[in-house]
Design a protein around this nucleic acid. Sequence first.
DNA 1: CCACTGAGTTCGTTGACCAGACTCACTTTG
DNA 2: CAAAGTGAGTCTGGTCAACGAACTCAGTGG
Lengths: 191, 191
Amino acid sequence: MALGTDYAQQDCTLARALEVVGERWSLLIVRDAFYGVRRFNDFLVHLDIPRAVLTARLAALTEAGVLRKEAYQQSPPRYDYVLTDAGLALWPPLHALMRWGGRYASQDEPTRTFHHTDCGARLDMTGGCPACGIAQVAPADVEMRWLPDADRPGRADQVAAALATTSPLLRPVRAAAGSGAFAGGDDPGNS
Amino acid sequence: MALGTDYAQQDCTLARALEVVGERWSLLIVRDAFYGVRRFNDFLVHLDIPRAVLTARLAALTEAGVLRKEAYQQSPPRYDYVLTDAGLALWPPLHALMRWGGRYASQDEPTRTFHHTDCGARLDMTGGCPACGIAQVAPADVEMRWLPDADRPGRADQVAAALATTSPLLRPVRAAAGSGAFAGGDDPGNS
DNA sequence: CCACTGAGTTCGTTGACCAGACTCACTTTG
DNA sequence: CAAAGTGAGTCTGGTCAACGAACTCAGTGG
């Protein structure tokens, strides 16, 4: 690690994992990637993170094999950051941590819940589907549901707006290529 | 948070969770607590962490309700730090992260594995027992197994030595009270 | 009386984080 | 064709947390 953020010789795989995703912002970046955020500027406005830090984290996560750069245009070369297999494998710990945070570190109800797309049942703590008896639902089969909350002021940025909806995990928040416009989620009401 | 380590108004329970256990060292402290480490000095030597940082982290985790102070002697008042219910509930994300680290962030075989005490089967990725069909094995029913590795130099400190053994999770590394001597694990061979 | 233990606190240095300004290669608009 | 805009950065200076080492302090054991 170029950063001073390694954990010496802890004889534990946890230390290895934390060297990769344990730094400040890293897991939030991975979470946003699951939500369908892919571009530098979208991570930037949605996470409200210093540019230099985002640059460093994306580079570190790419280097570690959690993200992969994928060109979405050539002329000025521009890249999407998308999850690799190793990144997708972070779904179980990520989901478990979110559940824990919702249960023990938050007084409000969660604004997002995760459901099995096929049957609509909410995932249990372990990331399985209680209705279908699947032990571990793959992220591609998970639907993210968003519950509006009158108290919360509502984020201003476009990424947050595009995510304030029900949609499958991993679906890009922006239309594939060409326009690059934000997907309106399942809500067709925005002109 | 007194520390500058909060994540503004991310509308996500993950941010809440990371404010509690996302700081450097925090999850490793929690892991050691699952391993049966309970005292300030034992965390200190096993994690090789600056004293001031450990003081701050233990205070923060206690404040957040993950750990609880429990007096183990009166005369100079001394406390064990033990996991609360909220702390115990961190087992699923913690185990999932360790599995991820072992699979994707480590080249060696893991030196510790976790098994269902009743049947001896290794826990699956989600923390369930594949043999018994239990979706989530409680930490108290988990046995930690240690596999020696000739290459690894072997840690010098007594806590690491006491943990280089097979034992149930949460069993204190030191004998209950009075002597305060290290438990030899299941290995009765150390005089 | 002295050394030791356990659990910290204090201090100076190093390094990471932060916010904002600047860069640079293009593209789009007037 | 010039001016403005876009996307993805780099640079910079200040602040704050982490680090390692030394020091404190209450009580105990020899």
